[in-house]
């Protein structure tokens, strides 16, 4: 199960994207919208970011193993341009999270990936959060109930 994860190009969002890419099969992309609405896309190649042109993105020419679904993350009030929603011919399911605020973002990402106990714990520690604040439902925590 490969997930395309698209994050805004800011330090905090890149870090979360890289953390996910280190734990799950991930096609990680970062985007930046310029002042005139122009889109810059970078793909994580495992050790460096490489430019991905809009043409290559549209045709899905930039990866070897296609994603099964996509998770797009956007800043509140800064919607991801339609051109960055991956076309249906190379990814079927597409989901969007419209916040970059750490707590709700980790909560929703954890639900999407169905984090196990050690993932919830790892991300909570990593970002200095209580596990219960990012996993209020107590998902995959046996002792919670």
């Amino acid at each position: 199960e490969v997930t395309l994860v698209m994050v805004p190009r800011d330090e905090a969002s890149l870090q979360k994207g890289l953390d996910l890419a280190n734990r799950y099969p991930t096609l990680l992309l970062s985007y930046k919208i310029g002042a005139r609405g122009e889109v810059s896309l970078h793909g994580w190649a495992g050790s460096e970011w490489v430019n991905v042109t809009p043409e290559k993105y549209k045709t899905g020419e930039f990866f070897r193993n296609g994603p099964n679904s996509a998770l797009l993350i956007e800043e509140p009030g800064m919607p991801i341009p339609e051109s960055l929603v991956p076309p249906v011919d190379w990814v079927e399911s597409v989901y969007k999270i419209s916040t970059t605020d750490t707590r709700p973002l980790l909560h929703l990402i954890g639900q999407y990936y169905d984090f196990d106990y050690k993932d919830w714990k790892w991300f909570a520690n990593r970002y200095g959060m209580d596990m219960a604040s990012i996993n209020p439902e107590g998902l995959n925590i046996a002792w919670y109930h």
């Binding site: 996509a70 797009l72 929603v85 249906v88 079927e92 399911s93 597409v94 989901y95 969007k96 999270i97 419209s98 916040t99 709700p104 973002l105 909560h107 929703l108």
Partner: peptide
């Protein structure tokens, strides 16, 4: 408010 306010299904098969 629930965090689900930030969650959107853009497309499912």
């Amino acid at each position: 408010a629930s965090d689900l306010q930030y969650w959107f299904v853009v497309r499912i098969p």
